[in-house]
Amino acid sequence: MKAGIVVFPGINRERDMAIALHASTGRAPAMLWHKDADLTGLDLVVIPGGFSYGDYLRCGAMAAQSPAMAAIRAHVARGGYLLGVCNGFQILTEAGLLPGALLRNAGLRFLSMDCHLRVERADTAFTNRYRAGEVFRAPMAHGDGNYFADDATLDRLEGENLVALRYATAEGAVTPDANFNGAARNIAGILSPSLRVMGLMPHPEDLVDPLMGGTDGKPLFDALAALEVA
């Protein structure tokens, strides 16, 4: 599996992502500066977390309009996999590669804490090392992670089974208390209809080492290690 991480100015979790991918795949992913991102031959492209362009205007807005996005769209069009985490998720929604938008957290504060995620769908290239309904823990660190879409879009996402992860209690209950940022229907991560694009707000890449408090995030990267573009 060949992975590449696209780095826009202000992205800052690219090293965390590289560590997690390296640990599961056994090889270092390509680090691709947005101005010269050549995605040929890659199975997986990742847009990691951070504050691309300072999160000025709107989180992810300027990266979503940058020239590198054309290559990323082409990668998806030819069947490549694409993962956006945190700012990467925001960029994917701004670019229209995933529906909805990420609003300011309901409590208006940046939130850096562990959350619990319930796996809504375990038959995808991203989540197949988890079981459906399984709950795993992941750090979150964002000011704008409050997922929003209009009701029709939310109904469609649920109808087409494209919600990948929801905020839940440690026991797996999807409750308002477990939904720290106020996301619509507790949505933490979603999939494209092709199931080849996933975006999520929390950071499983920061929980792949027992020394850092657990390996709850590792199955995601173990799953990615196995994927190959058909």
Binding site: Q65, E94, P99
Partner: peptide, 9 residues
């Protein structure tokens, strides 16, 4: 439409 506003929200 292209950049300044996100017409989703």
């Amino acid at each position: 439409r292209k950049l300044l506003a996100n017409t989703v929200i």
